[in-house]
Design a protein around this nucleic acid. Sequence first.
DNA 1: CTTAGCACTCCCGTTTCCTGAGTGCTAAAG
DNA 2: CTTTAGCACTCAGGAAACGGGAGTGCTAAG
Lengths: 361, 361
Amino acid sequence: MELSGRQKKILHAVVEGYIDTAEPIGSHAVLDRTGLTCSSATIRNELAALTREGYLEQPHTSAGRVPTVKGYRLYVNELMRERELSQSETEEINRKLSGTASGKDKLMADVGKMATELTSYPAVTISAAASATVKRVDIIYIDPNSFIIVLLLTGDTVKNKLVHLPFSSTETLLTRLSAVFNANFTGLSEEQITPELIASTERAAGDTMGVTSVIAGFLIETLMTSRGAGANVSGEANLLKLPEFQDPDKAHRLINYLSDSQNISALTAAPDFGDVKVLIGPENAALELRDSSVVLASYDAGDGMRGLIGVVGPTRMDYSAVAAKLSYIAGGLSRLLGAGASPPAGFGKLMIKGGESNVQK
Amino acid sequence: MELSGRQKKILHAVVEGYIDTAEPIGSHAVLDRTGLTCSSATIRNELAALTREGYLEQPHTSAGRVPTVKGYRLYVNELMRERELSQSETEEINRKLSGTASGKDKLMADVGKMATELTSYPAVTISAAASATVKRVDIIYIDPNSFIIVLLLTGDTVKNKLVHLPFSSTETLLTRLSAVFNANFTGLSEEQITPELIASTERAAGDTMGVTSVIAGFLIETLMTSRGAGANVSGEANLLKLPEFQDPDKAHRLINYLSDSQNISALTAAPDFGDVKVLIGPENAALELRDSSVVLASYDAGDGMRGLIGVVGPTRMDYSAVAAKLSYIAGGLSRLLGAGASPPAGFGKLMIKGGESNVQK
DNA sequence: CTTAGCACTCCCGTTTCCTGAGTGCTAAAG
DNA sequence: CTTTAGCACTCAGGAAACGGGAGTGCTAAG
């Protein structure tokens, strides 16, 4: 059944009303919100119809209506007005984006904090969606017993490690090693680094002291953790202010779930999408997210890689505001990190793609 | 008034009983716990005396007793038995400590997680208590438009940054810059880097393109943030399981407080102490910590610097277990990072120092 | 199709009541 | 002087009872 214009208006009002108040919306409240010129009885008839069709539900007889997942989905896909960010909001975002001058990890942490502040929901960032490969290896000689490995990965992530050796090495050996590593390891991902390769590298560099394996070990570990890493969460505490997380147990489960970066990285599994993706309640794969919603925006992280920035909140979340803000931030990040210097097409524009659009007739 | 042996026994029982159950302890419960061979009436008399002296209090008439701060203090200073870690506990700690092979930041994050797991309280780590200085600057040439700055600080922290230039530079310029920076900046802290110094460095290196100021900017920023940074928190969600944080508002305030690394760094302000320090409730400087307790252990971070690892929990926290675990972890960290290769004296030994020991007669 | 009217439902905040754990005090016993 | 038994008293907190009010569904008329 196709919804009439009035029904859409009413659904719209119920969703936004519920987003505002977290309380079921009754016929009178709908009347107030829509400005419709009919009586509450008419509204009641329409509400009954929408309930029958599965867009709304009642917590109990004689309460107002609350949107179902199907109702939210329709709202997000069709009804939601693209929210324009106000001048001050865009200014704030731009200011914050340009403020961070440090490394990429810090940048992402800062951007996450910013998303939290703007939306007042916990924010997640995921830097490297694909698995990284080696771009370059450098070794800085400090003294006979110590050196620094500097590893440049695709996505322009730089990792380093200070190594103290229990024996002495020489600057020439390290220089040689650096050259051999660059020759042998450039472009490799973690799986491609085999024990044989390490052995042949060791021979090629004439390393008799086992420095090679120290370096190779660092490469492997970094590549391994960089796959799932780059995940970052901030603002978990904000959940506690929401009425739906007043139960400490519920809050605990979710916050705990979010504090494991493995779980965050798993969000990457969300199927391909263009700009902004909204996952409502049970549309989420993870059990722990089944009664929350996740909004994700993807950005261009350079080197052909994509990153994600998103927030987690109750299903009753202000999707339009959140989507607009995340989209804008993602656009800014793409500009900052993306391949070309020019802002990517569609920057700041909002295109929602969702889960299976299960709005049936 | 000096407490009698029996009174101490009773106080001991009340504190540990309350730590266990989070419920006020009555005369019968004391009897059970101490195995004392007297009647509950006698216990009641003693409880009344301890209450009069300010070691205990009653939530309301006709409830059991709860320790006051003064009671906890006496317990921590005099009564608490040094808890020996079990073999499996020390093994677990050792295994985890040796497991982490990455950079220092990651190590501290991992150690924090470990402390959370072991104590089930939120854990904090603070890496660099004192402000760091430059030990060495290296510049890695990538291509005409990009290079990596690698900065080695006291405490063997390594920081890096990949810089993209909007113009071209040359490898020789970068090599020269690296040399000049090492000559001019080694040993300097953030305040000592003046605009004049930067200008003279620029001249000395013959840099006409402003690369010098990019590098100097990174140094300044890194030194600045490294002062308060190195702060790390994990396991905040664990608070939500505790009965004293069932009020979401209370939990929110504390978690929020902990999520600002500025606040964590402020814990450094705690006066000098030897091994483990316990701050009970209002002994804390920060308002937000006034009804929680903090246990801190300090470790040798090398280069004459000290770091802190600690946990935050309710005043009713298992001080002896927590102190023992933190002390052991700190000992392991000192061994790992500390100046000498040999384990520092007193490793694994437990010496408590507290706030002003305000146990008055 | 809309609307006024009305009976009905049921959540939720308040009040009342009651039970039981635990106390303090007194008076006798050691 | 200390310990103990006995007893009256207190009070938090859960269970039950209550009432108001928001909101519904239905019917019958416009």
